[in-house]
Write a protein that binds this DNA or RNA. Structure first.
Lengths: 152, 152
DNA sequence: TCCGCTATTGCAATTATTTGCAATAATATA
DNA sequence: TATATTATTGCAAATAATTGCAATAGCGGA
């Protein structure tokens, strides 16, 4: 059974109706890029069928997020993006000076997630986490500027 | 020197102009609740002076985020919130079944942040991290439902 | 103190996302 | 197969956040 059908079946098992729109949206998200915006998904679904509306895309994505099958997050430009667990846990590092994104080994998250479960019993979903800060490049090049920034 | 004046001085040092609007917005965010929405900040500033506009609030908050003095994040309802480092690193756990928020010891993040710095040289800002998942309560009560969810 | 430069603001328009409601359609049951 | 129930959709309106531009004002220099 393919990736997207897992979600579709799971939703059906929970009493949700499976419409052609929902199928196409889930498929597009599950088989598309690492992360996609609602508009991107909408445009791709439109190429297959006119029988879809942007509001429906948002609603379906919301449902997937509510159910834990997808994650909604803001990218470095503050834009809303969605991702499924297909690409696993993400740990992005965004430099607020140069704007570059660095991807780091998401396995670093595993101890944290495990510790939280031990301490609280909370079972975390896969996650897409973005940490903001300053990359090594900018730290090296802007040592004087940063010093001035912190002066009070 | 008080908390909000640190940011004001730092911005001034960087050549930004300090307007009465910016002062009030920064003060409200720095001395207000743990996290606030732009609208909440706007309403509070309005009580002190009519000389402010919601667009200005958003712009000032954006500037603070760009400079690393504040964090923008989505709360459990997908609503945009802002926070300063006053309340330190936050680690929220949001249950997607009951909707409850649990706050957990943010010190758990320290090893992760340290590890990232060692591996990549990336110096992370204070953060506000929200992990989605299922809390212990719901896990206990909904064991059958969850089983059904995962059936494929 | 005055003036010039230009960052910042208010306002209105634009864009992105959400919501209400009537029409449509998925699906269970007879 | 037909029907009933009601979830879901499309559409338009509403809300939340962003952007363009002329007016305003912060602040450095003379």
């Amino acid at each position: 059974m393919t990736h997207c059908h897992t979600y579709i079946q799971a939703l059906r098992n929970q009493g949700y109706r499976i419409t052609p729109q929902r199928e196409m949206i889930i498929e597009t998200l599950a088989h598309g890029d690492v992360h996609m915006s609602a508009e991107e998904i909408y445009q791709q679904v439109l190429q297959r069928s006119k029988a879809v509306n942007l509001a429906t895309v948002y609603r379906t994505l919301d449902l997937l997020v509510d159910k834990g099958y997808a994650t909604r997050f803001m990218d470095s430009d503050g834009k809303l993006m969605y991702a499924t667990e297909k690409h696993g846990t993400h740990l992005h590092l965004t430099c607020r000076i140069c704007g570059n994104n660095y991807q780091t080994d998401a396995n670093l998250l595993n101890p944290l997630i495990r510790q939280i479960e031990e301490m609280t019993g909370f079972k975390a979903d896969f996650e897409h986490i973005a940490l903001s800060g300053i990359c090594k490049n900018c730290l090296d090049q802007n040592i004087n500027t940063l010093k001035k920034e912190k002066e009070v």
